[in-house]
């Protein structure tokens, strides 16, 4: 068994165990929040999806820089794979955020700062894919999307700051400032760990699938030119 398989199986087992534990914690263990009620449990899904939306972009950023400097396809594959996973979680974060907004504020969509910033992030992901598919050749597409990957990540904190200053209603950044009861914090941490492990599992699958794809293309091309 090669290292890739060990890594993959390890992540698979880890994700499965953590997911199971986190489901137990979210639905059985953690007490219901006093003011918001049962709906507050969405929180344990909302924070991890938002976190993965960001984490994916950080990986895109790293892959993009390495690709531009080293021009090796594997870094573009890493960035691209992370983007494909990232946009799914960003979409999920928006949907979950809407579901959260409905009972709390009585509307499906509110221009709440973090939700707004996530929406802008979603558009940046979209730009990442569009510029790649509309570029005149694949190598250009890879380079241009790497540019979006770099500019996008640098922009995220500025977007977050400007939307926060622009609007301001939310349960505040209470998560790490001791505002969360210990069982809730534990549940959140386990969910975060479970989703992070799941992300790396998906990333591993995506990267190896894309590597195989590019290998097949190279082989096909070499057969054709013979």
């Amino acid at each position: 068994m090669n290292t890739n398989n060990i890594l993959r199986n390890g992540l698979l087992i880890l994700s499965f165990v953590l997911m199971t534990v986190s489901l137990y914690l979210v639905f059985v263990f953690v007490p219901t929040e006093r003011e918001m009620g049962i709906v507050q449990r969405i929180f344990y899904l909302m924070v991890p999806t938002g976190w993965l939306a960001l984490l994916s972009f950080v990986i895109i950023f790293i892959g993009s820089i390495l690709y531009l400097v080293k021009r090796a396809r594997k870094w573009d594959i890493l960035a691209m794979s992370s983007a494909e996973i990232g946009i799914v979680f960003t979409t999920l974060a928006l949907i979950v955020g809407s579901i959260w907004a409905r009972p709390i504020w009585g509307v499906w969509w509110t221009w709440e700062p973090r939700l707004t910033a996530t929406l802008v992030l979603w558009f940046i992901y979209l730009a990442y894919f569009m510029v790649r598919s509309l570029a005149t050749d694949p190598e250009r597409g890879a380079r241009y999307s790497a540019i979006v990957g770099i500019i996008g990540l640098v922009d995220i904190p500025i977007i977050a700051l400007s939307t926060t200053l622009w609007r301001g209603i939310h349960p505040g950044p209470v998560i790490f400032s001791g505002g969360l009861a210990p069982p809730m914090l534990l549940t959140l941490m386990v969910s975060l760990a479970a989703f992070t492990s799941f992300y790396f599992l998906l990333l591993q699958y995506k990267v190896s699938a894309k590597n195989d794809e590019s290998l097949i293309n190279t082989l096909r091309e070499s057969i054709k030119s013979r």
């Binding site: 190598e139 096909r220 091309e221």
Partner: peptide, 11 residues
């Protein structure tokens, strides 16, 4: 020049 290579896609 030595060993110059430049791919366009897989070509």
């Amino acid at each position: 020049a030595r060993d110059l290579a430049k791919p366009f896609g897989s070509y």
